[in-house]
Design a protein around this nucleic acid. Structure first.
Lengths: 226, 226
DNA sequence: TATCAGTCGATACACCGTATCACCCGTGGC
DNA sequence: GCCACGGGTGATACGGTGTATCGACTGATA
Protein backbone atom coordinates (compact mmCIF):
# COMPACT_ATOMS: atom_id res chain seq x y z
CA UNK A 1 0.00 0.00 0.00
CA UNK A 2 1.52 3.25 -1.11
CA UNK A 3 2.08 6.05 1.31
CA UNK A 4 0.37 8.78 -0.62
CA UNK A 5 -2.83 6.85 -0.78
CA UNK A 6 -3.80 8.26 2.59
CA UNK A 7 -2.51 11.82 2.65
CA UNK A 8 -3.48 14.15 5.46
CA UNK A 9 -6.57 15.82 3.98
CA UNK A 10 -5.61 19.49 4.00
CA UNK A 11 -9.13 20.92 3.97
CA UNK A 12 -10.21 18.67 6.82
CA UNK A 13 -7.63 19.43 9.48
CA UNK A 14 -7.28 16.99 12.32
CA UNK A 15 -9.88 18.13 14.87
CA UNK A 16 -8.82 19.20 18.31
CA UNK A 17 -9.41 16.32 20.72
CA UNK A 18 -12.75 16.39 22.45
CA UNK A 19 -12.78 17.55 26.04
CA UNK A 20 -15.17 18.75 28.69
CA UNK A 21 -13.96 22.26 28.09
CA UNK A 22 -14.62 22.18 24.37
CA UNK A 23 -18.08 20.73 24.97
CA UNK A 24 -18.97 23.33 27.58
CA UNK A 25 -17.62 26.11 25.41
CA UNK A 26 -19.67 24.98 22.45
CA UNK A 27 -22.78 24.76 24.60
CA UNK A 28 -22.21 28.27 25.93
CA UNK A 29 -21.83 29.62 22.42
CA UNK A 30 -25.12 28.02 21.42
CA UNK A 31 -26.89 29.37 24.49
CA UNK A 32 -25.49 32.86 23.99
CA UNK A 33 -26.69 32.89 20.41
CA UNK A 34 -30.13 31.32 20.66
CA UNK A 35 -31.02 30.82 24.31
CA UNK A 36 -31.03 27.81 26.58
CA UNK A 37 -33.61 25.98 24.48
CA UNK A 38 -31.08 25.85 21.66
CA UNK A 39 -28.75 23.78 23.83
CA UNK A 40 -29.50 20.18 23.01
CA UNK A 41 -26.96 17.42 23.17
CA UNK A 42 -27.51 16.82 19.48
CA UNK A 43 -26.80 20.41 18.54
CA UNK A 44 -23.77 20.65 20.81
CA UNK A 45 -22.42 17.46 19.30
CA UNK A 46 -23.13 18.70 15.78
CA UNK A 47 -21.27 21.94 16.52
CA UNK A 48 -18.28 19.80 17.44
CA UNK A 49 -18.66 17.54 14.39
CA UNK A 50 -19.33 14.53 16.53
CA UNK A 51 -22.10 12.06 17.17
CA UNK A 52 -24.42 12.88 20.06
CA UNK A 53 -23.52 9.82 22.08
CA UNK A 54 -19.90 10.78 22.02
CA UNK A 55 -20.59 13.47 24.62
CA UNK A 56 -21.50 10.87 27.21
CA UNK A 57 -17.87 9.98 27.48
CA UNK A 58 -17.29 13.38 29.04
CA UNK A 59 -20.53 14.28 30.79
CA UNK A 60 -22.97 12.03 32.57
CA UNK A 61 -26.14 13.91 31.80
CA UNK A 62 -27.44 17.12 30.34
CA UNK A 63 -27.91 18.59 33.79
CA UNK A 64 -24.22 18.14 34.40
CA UNK A 65 -23.51 20.06 31.21
CA UNK A 66 -25.69 22.92 32.43
CA UNK A 67 -23.90 22.89 35.78
CA UNK A 68 -20.58 23.07 33.99
CA UNK A 69 -21.79 25.98 31.90
CA UNK A 70 -22.71 27.92 35.03
CA UNK A 71 -19.39 27.16 36.67
CA UNK A 72 -17.55 28.26 33.55
CA UNK A 73 -19.27 31.63 33.67
CA UNK A 74 -18.38 31.95 37.34
CA UNK A 75 -14.79 32.20 36.19
CA UNK A 76 -15.61 35.81 35.36
CA UNK A 77 -17.20 36.51 38.74
CA UNK A 78 -14.40 37.38 41.15
CA UNK A 79 -15.55 39.88 43.74
CA UNK A 80 -12.93 42.37 44.88
CA UNK A 81 -12.84 45.54 46.90
CA UNK A 82 -11.97 46.93 50.30
CA UNK A 83 -14.32 46.03 53.08
CA UNK A 84 -17.40 43.89 53.25
CA UNK A 85 -19.66 46.41 51.56
CA UNK A 86 -17.54 46.81 48.46
CA UNK A 87 -17.05 43.07 48.24
CA UNK A 88 -20.73 42.27 48.42
CA UNK A 89 -21.55 45.04 45.96
CA UNK A 90 -18.84 43.71 43.65
CA UNK A 91 -20.29 40.22 43.86
CA UNK A 92 -23.72 41.52 42.95
CA UNK A 93 -22.54 43.70 40.07
CA UNK A 94 -20.25 41.04 38.63
CA UNK A 95 -23.02 38.44 38.70
CA UNK A 96 -25.41 40.85 37.03
CA UNK A 97 -22.84 41.71 34.40
CA UNK A 98 -22.28 38.03 33.66
CA UNK A 99 -26.01 37.55 33.26
CA UNK A 100 -26.10 40.41 30.79
CA UNK A 101 -23.47 38.71 28.69
CA UNK A 102 -25.09 35.29 29.08
CA UNK A 103 -28.81 35.80 29.53
CA UNK A 104 -29.40 32.09 30.00
CA UNK A 105 -27.56 32.39 33.30
CA UNK A 106 -30.70 33.99 34.70
CA UNK A 107 -32.58 30.76 34.01
CA UNK A 108 -30.01 28.64 35.79
CA UNK A 109 -28.95 30.78 38.76
CA UNK A 110 -30.13 29.29 42.00
CA UNK A 111 -31.71 26.33 40.28
CA UNK A 112 -29.02 23.84 41.18
CA UNK A 113 -26.48 23.48 43.98
CA UNK A 114 -23.26 24.91 42.65
CA UNK A 115 -20.06 23.37 43.92
CA UNK A 116 -17.79 23.76 40.91
CA UNK A 117 -14.25 25.11 41.24
CA UNK A 118 -15.01 28.56 39.84
CA UNK A 119 -18.12 28.96 41.95
CA UNK A 120 -16.15 27.95 45.02
CA UNK A 121 -13.36 30.35 44.07
CA UNK A 122 -15.90 33.12 43.80
CA UNK A 123 -17.20 32.19 47.22
CA UNK A 124 -13.68 32.18 48.56
CA UNK A 125 -13.16 35.74 47.31
CA UNK A 126 -16.31 36.84 49.08
CA UNK A 127 -15.45 35.01 52.29
CA UNK A 128 -11.96 36.45 52.28
CA UNK A 129 -13.32 39.94 51.73
CA UNK A 130 -15.62 39.72 54.74
CA UNK A 131 -12.68 39.76 57.15
CA UNK A 132 -13.55 41.42 60.40
CA UNK A 133 -17.28 40.82 60.14
CA UNK A 134 -18.37 38.27 62.70
CA UNK A 135 -19.45 35.00 61.17
CA UNK A 136 -22.91 35.13 62.67
CA UNK A 137 -23.60 38.14 60.48
CA UNK A 138 -21.41 37.37 57.49
CA UNK A 139 -23.09 34.06 56.63
CA UNK A 140 -26.68 35.34 56.43
CA UNK A 141 -25.46 38.54 54.77
CA UNK A 142 -23.81 36.63 51.95
CA UNK A 143 -26.84 34.40 51.60
CA UNK A 144 -29.13 37.41 51.44
CA UNK A 145 -27.09 39.18 48.78
CA UNK A 146 -26.95 36.01 46.74
CA UNK A 147 -30.70 35.57 47.00
CA UNK A 148 -31.34 39.17 46.03
CA UNK A 149 -29.04 38.94 43.03
CA UNK A 150 -30.64 35.73 41.80
CA UNK A 151 -34.13 37.19 41.97
CA UNK A 152 -33.27 40.66 40.68
CA UNK A 153 -31.34 39.34 37.71
CA UNK A 154 -34.09 36.89 36.93
CA UNK A 155 -36.73 39.59 36.89
CA UNK A 156 -34.57 41.93 34.91
CA UNK A 157 -33.76 39.42 32.18
CA UNK A 158 -37.36 38.30 32.04
CA UNK A 159 -38.50 41.85 31.50
CA UNK A 160 -35.84 42.43 28.90
CA UNK A 161 -37.01 39.38 26.98
CA UNK A 162 -40.63 40.47 27.16
CA UNK A 163 -39.73 43.86 25.76
CA UNK A 164 -37.66 42.30 23.03
CA UNK A 165 -40.42 39.85 22.16
CA UNK A 166 -43.11 42.47 21.61
CA UNK A 167 -41.47 45.08 19.47
CA UNK A 168 -38.24 46.63 20.56
CA UNK A 169 -38.31 49.51 23.00
CA UNK A 170 -40.25 50.29 26.12
CA UNK A 171 -42.69 52.46 24.25
CA UNK A 172 -43.71 49.63 21.98
CA UNK A 173 -43.99 47.36 24.97
CA UNK A 174 -46.43 49.76 26.55
CA UNK A 175 -48.37 49.77 23.31
CA UNK A 176 -48.52 46.01 23.37
CA UNK A 177 -49.54 45.50 26.97
CA UNK A 178 -50.86 48.99 27.53
CA UNK A 179 -54.38 48.37 26.27
CA UNK A 180 -54.75 45.29 28.42
CA UNK A 181 -53.40 47.02 31.50
CA UNK A 182 -55.37 50.17 30.81
CA UNK A 183 -58.53 48.16 30.57
CA UNK A 184 -57.69 46.40 33.81
CA UNK A 185 -56.89 49.62 35.60
CA UNK A 186 -59.95 51.30 34.12
CA UNK A 187 -62.13 48.80 35.97
CA UNK A 188 -61.04 50.40 39.21
CA UNK A 189 -60.31 47.01 40.76
CA UNK A 190 -56.72 47.95 41.52
CA UNK A 191 -56.71 51.60 42.51
CA UNK A 192 -53.56 51.59 44.63
CA UNK A 193 -51.60 49.56 42.09
CA UNK A 194 -52.83 51.85 39.35
CA UNK A 195 -51.65 54.92 41.22
CA UNK A 196 -48.33 53.29 41.90
CA UNK A 197 -47.76 52.44 38.25
CA UNK A 198 -49.07 55.76 37.04
CA UNK A 199 -47.49 58.21 39.45
CA UNK A 200 -44.53 56.17 40.66
CA UNK A 201 -41.00 56.70 39.38
CA UNK A 202 -39.99 54.91 36.21
CA UNK A 203 -36.55 53.70 37.17
CA UNK A 204 -34.38 52.01 34.61
CA UNK A 205 -32.91 48.58 35.24
CA UNK A 206 -29.60 49.88 36.59
CA UNK A 207 -31.23 52.17 39.13
CA UNK A 208 -33.72 49.55 40.25
CA UNK A 209 -31.00 46.98 40.81
CA UNK A 210 -28.79 49.38 42.72
CA UNK A 211 -31.62 50.78 44.82
CA UNK A 212 -32.56 47.32 46.04
CA UNK A 213 -28.95 46.38 46.61
CA UNK A 214 -28.43 49.56 48.64
CA UNK A 215 -31.42 48.74 50.81
CA UNK A 216 -29.94 45.37 51.54
CA UNK A 217 -26.40 46.60 52.17
CA UNK A 218 -27.71 49.37 54.42
CA UNK A 219 -29.58 46.83 56.47
CA UNK A 220 -26.52 44.61 56.74
CA UNK A 221 -24.42 47.61 57.71
CA UNK A 222 -26.82 48.51 60.48
CA UNK A 223 -26.42 45.02 61.93
CA UNK A 224 -22.64 45.07 61.65
CA UNK A 225 -22.23 48.41 63.37
CA UNK A 226 -24.67 47.47 66.08
CA UNK B 1 -89.30 6.47 24.23
CA UNK B 2 -89.62 5.57 27.86
CA UNK B 3 -88.03 7.73 30.46
CA UNK B 4 -86.08 5.06 32.26
CA UNK B 5 -84.38 3.96 29.08
CA UNK B 6 -81.72 6.60 29.62
CA UNK B 7 -81.01 6.62 33.32
CA UNK B 8 -78.11 8.63 34.66
CA UNK B 9 -75.32 6.01 34.48
CA UNK B 10 -74.19 5.86 38.08
CA UNK B 11 -70.71 4.42 37.55
CA UNK B 12 -69.87 6.74 34.64
CA UNK B 13 -71.13 10.13 35.80
CA UNK B 14 -71.41 12.78 33.17
CA UNK B 15 -68.01 14.49 33.25
CA UNK B 16 -67.82 18.09 34.33
CA UNK B 17 -67.42 20.27 31.27
CA UNK B 18 -63.85 21.12 30.45
CA UNK B 19 -62.67 24.55 31.44
CA UNK B 20 -59.49 26.49 31.95
CA UNK B 21 -59.94 26.10 35.67
CA UNK B 22 -60.23 22.34 35.53
CA UNK B 23 -57.19 22.12 33.28
CA UNK B 24 -55.10 24.36 35.50
CA UNK B 25 -56.20 22.50 38.59
CA UNK B 26 -55.25 19.16 37.07
CA UNK B 27 -51.86 20.51 36.05
CA UNK B 28 -51.22 21.84 39.55
CA UNK B 29 -52.10 18.48 41.05
CA UNK B 30 -49.65 16.76 38.73
CA UNK B 31 -46.92 19.29 39.50
CA UNK B 32 -47.51 19.02 43.25
CA UNK B 33 -47.22 15.27 43.09
CA UNK B 34 -44.31 14.73 40.73
CA UNK B 35 -42.74 18.08 39.93
CA UNK B 36 -42.90 20.37 36.94
CA UNK B 37 -41.42 17.78 34.61
CA UNK B 38 -44.50 15.65 35.16
CA UNK B 39 -46.67 18.37 33.68
CA UNK B 40 -47.05 17.51 30.02
CA UNK B 41 -50.07 18.37 27.97
CA UNK B 42 -50.55 14.69 27.33
CA UNK B 43 -50.59 13.82 31.02
CA UNK B 44 -52.85 16.72 31.93
CA UNK B 45 -55.26 15.68 29.21
CA UNK B 46 -55.12 12.06 30.34
CA UNK B 47 -55.91 13.13 33.91
CA UNK B 48 -59.03 14.79 32.53
CA UNK B 49 -59.95 11.80 30.36
CA UNK B 50 -59.55 13.81 27.22
CA UNK B 51 -57.38 13.85 24.11
CA UNK B 52 -54.28 16.06 24.27
CA UNK B 53 -55.40 18.34 21.44
CA UNK B 54 -58.58 19.12 23.27
CA UNK B 55 -56.66 21.40 25.62
CA UNK B 56 -55.81 23.76 22.81
CA UNK B 57 -59.39 24.90 22.82
CA UNK B 58 -58.73 26.47 26.21
CA UNK B 59 -55.05 27.37 26.25
CA UNK B 60 -52.88 28.57 23.42
CA UNK B 61 -49.61 27.01 24.49
CA UNK B 62 -47.96 25.19 27.35
CA UNK B 63 -46.34 28.39 28.55
CA UNK B 64 -49.79 29.88 28.98
CA UNK B 65 -50.75 26.91 31.11
CA UNK B 66 -47.71 27.48 33.33
CA UNK B 67 -48.60 31.16 33.64
CA UNK B 68 -52.11 30.22 34.66
CA UNK B 69 -50.76 27.80 37.26
CA UNK B 70 -48.68 30.57 38.81
CA UNK B 71 -51.58 32.97 38.84
CA UNK B 72 -53.79 30.34 40.44
CA UNK B 73 -51.32 29.93 43.29
CA UNK B 74 -51.21 33.71 43.71
CA UNK B 75 -54.81 33.44 44.85
CA UNK B 76 -53.35 32.31 48.18
CA UNK B 77 -50.90 35.20 48.38
CA UNK B 78 -52.75 38.17 49.84
CA UNK B 79 -50.43 40.33 51.93
CA UNK B 80 -52.01 42.00 54.93
CA UNK B 81 -50.85 43.86 57.97
CA UNK B 82 -50.54 47.33 59.44
CA UNK B 83 -47.87 49.51 57.94
CA UNK B 84 -45.45 48.99 55.09
CA UNK B 85 -43.14 46.72 57.05
CA UNK B 86 -45.77 44.22 58.03
CA UNK B 87 -47.19 44.24 54.54
CA UNK B 88 -43.86 43.56 52.87
CA UNK B 89 -43.03 40.88 55.40
CA UNK B 90 -46.44 39.33 54.86
CA UNK B 91 -45.87 39.32 51.10
CA UNK B 92 -42.56 37.55 51.56
CA UNK B 93 -43.83 34.98 54.03
CA UNK B 94 -46.96 34.23 52.04
CA UNK B 95 -44.97 33.71 48.85
CA UNK B 96 -42.55 31.44 50.66
CA UNK B 97 -45.39 29.46 52.17
CA UNK B 98 -46.98 29.01 48.77
CA UNK B 99 -43.67 27.74 47.40
CA UNK B 100 -43.49 25.24 50.25
CA UNK B 101 -46.89 23.90 49.27
CA UNK B 102 -46.09 24.00 45.56
CA UNK B 103 -42.36 23.52 45.14
CA UNK B 104 -42.58 23.95 41.39
CA UNK B 105 -43.44 27.58 42.04
CA UNK B 106 -39.77 28.14 42.79
CA UNK B 107 -38.94 27.12 39.23
CA UNK B 108 -41.46 29.52 37.74
CA UNK B 109 -41.21 32.59 39.99
CA UNK B 110 -39.69 35.50 38.17
CA UNK B 111 -39.34 33.53 34.98
CA UNK B 112 -42.25 35.16 33.17
CA UNK B 113 -44.05 38.48 33.37
CA UNK B 114 -47.07 37.90 35.57
CA UNK B 115 -50.15 39.96 34.82
CA UNK B 116 -52.89 37.55 35.83
CA UNK B 117 -55.80 38.70 37.97
CA UNK B 118 -54.61 37.05 41.17
CA UNK B 119 -51.07 38.34 40.76
CA UNK B 120 -52.44 41.83 40.17
CA UNK B 121 -54.71 41.50 43.20
CA UNK B 122 -51.70 40.54 45.29
CA UNK B 123 -49.88 43.58 43.95
CA UNK B 124 -52.88 45.72 44.78
CA UNK B 125 -52.82 44.51 48.37
CA UNK B 126 -49.16 45.45 48.64
CA UNK B 127 -49.62 48.81 46.98
CA UNK B 128 -52.58 49.60 49.22
CA UNK B 129 -50.59 48.63 52.29
CA UNK B 130 -47.76 51.01 51.45
CA UNK B 131 -49.94 54.01 52.13
CA UNK B 132 -47.94 56.92 53.45
CA UNK B 133 -44.65 55.80 51.99
CA UNK B 134 -43.61 58.10 49.17
CA UNK B 135 -43.75 56.46 45.79
CA UNK B 136 -40.09 57.08 45.03
CA UNK B 137 -39.25 54.71 47.85
CA UNK B 138 -42.22 52.36 47.70
CA UNK B 139 -41.64 51.23 44.12
CA UNK B 140 -38.01 50.14 44.49
CA UNK B 141 -38.78 48.72 47.93
CA UNK B 142 -41.47 46.44 46.55
CA UNK B 143 -39.25 45.44 43.67
CA UNK B 144 -36.40 44.63 46.05
CA UNK B 145 -38.53 42.49 48.33
CA UNK B 146 -39.92 40.64 45.34
CA UNK B 147 -36.43 40.02 43.99
CA UNK B 148 -35.20 38.80 47.36
CA UNK B 149 -38.13 36.45 47.78
CA UNK B 150 -37.70 34.98 44.31
CA UNK B 151 -34.03 34.25 44.88
CA UNK B 152 -34.32 33.11 48.48
CA UNK B 153 -37.17 30.73 47.75
CA UNK B 154 -35.36 29.38 44.72
CA UNK B 155 -32.23 28.61 46.70
CA UNK B 156 -34.19 27.13 49.57
CA UNK B 157 -36.20 24.77 47.39
CA UNK B 158 -33.11 23.80 45.44
CA UNK B 159 -31.32 22.88 48.63
CA UNK B 160 -34.32 20.98 49.90
CA UNK B 161 -34.41 18.96 46.71
CA UNK B 162 -30.71 18.19 46.88
CA UNK B 163 -31.08 16.94 50.42
CA UNK B 164 -34.06 14.83 49.48
CA UNK B 165 -32.28 13.42 46.45
CA UNK B 166 -29.27 12.14 48.35
CA UNK B 167 -30.73 10.31 51.28
CA UNK B 168 -33.10 12.08 53.55
CA UNK B 169 -31.74 14.30 56.27
CA UNK B 170 -28.98 16.83 56.51
CA UNK B 171 -26.63 14.31 58.04
CA UNK B 172 -26.89 12.01 55.07
CA UNK B 173 -26.44 14.95 52.77
CA UNK B 174 -23.20 15.79 54.50
CA UNK B 175 -22.14 12.19 54.06
CA UNK B 176 -22.89 12.39 50.36
CA UNK B 177 -21.19 15.67 49.59
CA UNK B 178 -18.98 15.79 52.65
CA UNK B 179 -16.12 13.75 51.24
CA UNK B 180 -16.00 15.86 48.10
CA UNK B 181 -16.10 19.11 50.05
CA UNK B 182 -13.65 17.85 52.65
CA UNK B 183 -11.22 16.93 49.94
CA UNK B 184 -11.65 20.34 48.35
CA UNK B 185 -11.20 22.15 51.62
CA UNK B 186 -8.27 19.92 52.54
CA UNK B 187 -6.37 21.28 49.55
CA UNK B 188 -6.25 24.64 51.27
CA UNK B 189 -7.38 26.43 48.13
CA UNK B 190 -10.33 28.00 49.89
CA UNK B 191 -9.21 28.86 53.42
CA UNK B 192 -11.66 31.68 54.10
CA UNK B 193 -14.60 29.76 52.67
CA UNK B 194 -13.56 26.73 54.67
CA UNK B 195 -13.48 28.72 57.88
CA UNK B 196 -16.85 30.23 57.10
CA UNK B 197 -18.45 26.85 56.50
CA UNK B 198 -16.72 25.25 59.43
CA UNK B 199 -17.04 27.89 62.14
CA UNK B 200 -20.02 29.84 60.84
CA UNK B 201 -23.53 29.42 62.22
CA UNK B 202 -25.68 26.65 60.81
CA UNK B 203 -28.96 28.47 60.44
CA UNK B 204 -32.02 26.57 59.39
CA UNK B 205 -34.06 27.64 56.39
CA UNK B 206 -36.53 29.71 58.42
CA UNK B 207 -33.85 31.71 60.17
CA UNK B 208 -31.86 32.29 57.01
CA UNK B 209 -34.90 33.57 55.16
CA UNK B 210 -35.96 35.86 57.96
CA UNK B 211 -32.45 37.17 58.59
CA UNK B 212 -32.09 38.25 54.97
CA UNK B 213 -35.58 39.71 54.92
CA UNK B 214 -34.83 41.69 58.08
CA UNK B 215 -31.68 43.11 56.51
CA UNK B 216 -33.71 44.28 53.56
CA UNK B 217 -36.59 45.71 55.60
CA UNK B 218 -34.15 47.48 57.91
CA UNK B 219 -32.50 49.10 54.93
CA UNK B 220 -35.85 50.17 53.51
CA UNK B 221 -36.88 51.51 56.90
CA UNK B 222 -33.74 53.59 57.13
CA UNK B 223 -34.59 55.21 53.81
CA UNK B 224 -38.21 55.84 54.77
CA UNK B 225 -37.38 57.51 58.07
CA UNK B 226 -34.65 59.57 56.49
C1' DT C 1 -0.72 -12.84 12.39
C1' DA C 2 -4.67 -13.78 15.22
C1' DT C 3 -7.21 -12.56 19.11
C1' DC C 4 -9.04 -9.55 22.19
C1' DA C 5 -10.49 -5.37 24.58
C1' DG C 6 -12.23 -1.14 24.34
C1' DT C 7 -14.06 2.80 22.11
C1' DC C 8 -17.32 4.89 19.00
C1' DG C 9 -21.45 6.04 17.00
C1' DA C 10 -25.70 4.30 14.44
C1' DT C 11 -29.96 2.88 15.76
C1' DA C 12 -33.81 2.66 18.78
C1' DC C 13 -37.09 4.00 22.43
C1' DA C 14 -40.18 6.67 24.87
C1' DC C 15 -41.73 10.98 25.25
C1' DC C 16 -42.43 15.85 24.17
C1' DG C 17 -45.27 20.19 22.04
C1' DT C 18 -48.15 21.05 18.49
C1' DA C 19 -49.99 21.18 13.16
C1' DT C 20 -53.03 18.92 10.32
C1' DC C 21 -57.18 17.10 8.89
C1' DA C 22 -60.67 13.25 8.36
C1' DC C 23 -64.63 12.17 10.65
C1' DC C 24 -68.79 12.50 13.20
C1' DC C 25 -72.55 14.70 15.19
C1' DG C 26 -75.78 18.19 15.83
C1' DT C 27 -78.32 21.60 13.47
C1' DG C 28 -80.69 24.34 9.90
C1' DG C 29 -83.08 24.34 5.56
C1' DC C 30 -85.98 22.31 2.22
C1' DG D 1 -88.85 13.81 7.66
C1' DC D 2 -84.73 13.92 5.22
C1' DC D 3 -80.54 15.83 3.77
C1' DA D 4 -76.67 18.91 3.34
C1' DC D 5 -73.76 21.51 5.76
C1' DG D 6 -70.59 23.33 9.31
C1' DG D 7 -67.93 23.07 13.19
C1' DG D 8 -65.90 20.87 17.12
C1' DT D 9 -63.06 16.53 18.20
C1' DG D 10 -59.45 13.76 18.55
C1' DA D 11 -56.44 10.34 15.83
C1' DT D 12 -52.46 10.69 13.41
C1' DA D 13 -48.20 12.75 12.16
C1' DC D 14 -43.92 15.51 12.42
C1' DG D 15 -39.81 17.04 14.09
C1' DG D 16 -37.54 17.29 18.07
C1' DT D 17 -35.69 15.72 22.85
C1' DG D 18 -32.50 12.82 26.38
C1' DT D 19 -30.41 8.64 26.69
C1' DA D 20 -29.93 2.99 26.51
C1' DT D 21 -28.31 -0.50 23.74
C1' DC D 22 -25.27 -2.87 21.05
C1' DG D 23 -22.86 -3.99 16.64
C1' DA D 24 -18.74 -2.80 14.32
C1' DC D 25 -14.38 -1.11 13.93
C1' DT D 26 -9.64 0.04 15.73
C1' DG D 27 -5.61 -0.51 17.99
C1' DA D 28 -2.86 -3.20 20.96
C1' DT D 29 -1.22 -7.55 22.63
C1' DA D 30 0.08 -12.56 22.58
Amino acid sequence: MLVWERPEPPDRPVPAPLSRERIVHAAIRLADADGLDAVSLRKVAAALDVGPMRLYGYIATKEELLDLMVDAVYAEIRPTGDGWREVLRSLAEATRKAAHQHEWLADLLGGRPQLGPNTLASGESVAAGMGGVDLGTAVPAIAAVNAYVIGAVRREITERRAERASGMNREQWQNAFGPYLLRIFATGQFPALSTLVHDGPHLDADDTFRAGLDFLLDGIGARISR
